[in-house]
């Protein structure tokens, strides 16, 4: 058992109970959440390319939106799904939705229901007024659901969506859905946007982008983002949204501020707090070492 009473300032800093860090961070996050404040979120090139690609689509064209994350990644990835889905529905771009993560169908269904409600209301984005309209399952979107062994499913969809998805999530025959009428495989869609919090993204890169030359963009959790930048450099993916920042950038571009933009002001203060803790810890580390002549 240690006793801090005989220790100097630097030693006490080194022995700081980590729960102080939790407490200070919690107080900072909660308090700054309620302070009205705007932080600038300039869009990066890799997010701008995704936005431009979807914005450039015409009515009736189709994309595949892969919702490959579980509730544990909801905080970062749900805002991406919401903003992209709404952008597509507003522009009358068909959305084919798959969910190859185990608990992903629930995420996808929640997003669909919320965006269907949202699109029913008239809105103005980037100066363009969109009237509210009813989004119809099978016409405006198709939710294909989950299939096990995502590598094989992604490969199989390159030949025909019906190989693995003869029926959609609601047990309706794919052939009876108007949106799927002219869709056989990846050749019949404009791009794939994979919003992923797991290694399903590797399969999309390999088995869809590399094997079938599918135009692929990614929305990833912050933890994963740095690992996938090389694919942006090699051109295998054309856009990348990283974590809450990527989602906030997209929301700003789409002029549709949501939970991500809302969270960025808190991020700024939380990061400043963590930087302060890192500096204090380093002062303690070097100070205590110097004192001992190490």
């Amino acid at each position: 058992m240690s006793n801090n009473s005989n220790k100097g300032f630097f030693d006490r800093v080194m022995l700081l109970d980590r729960r102080w860090v939790f407490l200070v961070l919690a107080v900072v996050v909660v308090s700054t959440y309620y302070i009205p404040m705007n932080v600038p979120v300039p869009a990066s090139r890799e997010v701008q390319t995704i936005f431009d690609a979807i914005e450039g689509l015409e009515e009736g064209q189709k994309i595949l939106l892969a919702i490959d994350y579980d509730p544990n990644a909801l905080a970062e990835l749900h805002p991406m799904t919401y903003v992209i889905m709404e952008q597509c529905f507003r522009k009358k771009v068909g959305v084919i939705i798959t969910s190859l993560s185990q608990n992903g169908p629930g995420m996808a269904e929640q997003a669909i229901l919320d965006i269907v409600d949202s699109t029913a209301l008239p809105k103005t984005y980037n100066g363009v007024s969109y009237p509210g309209r009813e989004i119809v399952n099978g016409v405006d979107y198709a939710f294909l659901g989950y299939r096990a062994y995502f590598e094989l499913v992604i490969t199989g969809m390159g030949q025909n969506f019906r190989t693995f998805f003869s029926r959609d999530y609601y047990d309706v025959l794919l052939d009876s859905l108007p949106i799927m009428k002219d869709v056989q495989n990846y050749d019949d869609i404009e791009m794939v946007i994979d919003i992923s919090g797991s290694n399903v993204v590797d399969a999309w890169i390999k088995y869809a982008a590399a094997r079938y030359d599918v135009k692929l963009a990614l929305g990833l959790t912050g933890v994963m983002t740095a690992d996938y930048y090389p694919y942006l450099g090699s051109g295998r993916v054309f856009g990348l949204m990283g974590g809450l920042l990527g989602a906030a950038e997209y929301e700003r571009l789409a002029d549709n501020p949501g939970l991500a933009m809302d969270g960025m002001k808190v991020q700024v203060w939380a990061h400043l707090t963590i930087i302060a803790f890192i500096i204090i810890a380093n002062i303690g580390y070097f100070g205590s070492h110097k004192k001992r002549g190490l």
Partner: peptide, 20 residues
């Protein structure tokens, strides 16, 4: 460092989401 920065952002995002 870039990975660590993104990881911190990810963890804070989870907390922010729960506060929201």
């Amino acid at each position: 460092g870039a990975s660590f920065g993104f990881t911190v952002m990810a963890r804070i995002s989870l907390l922010i989401n729960r506060v929201q």
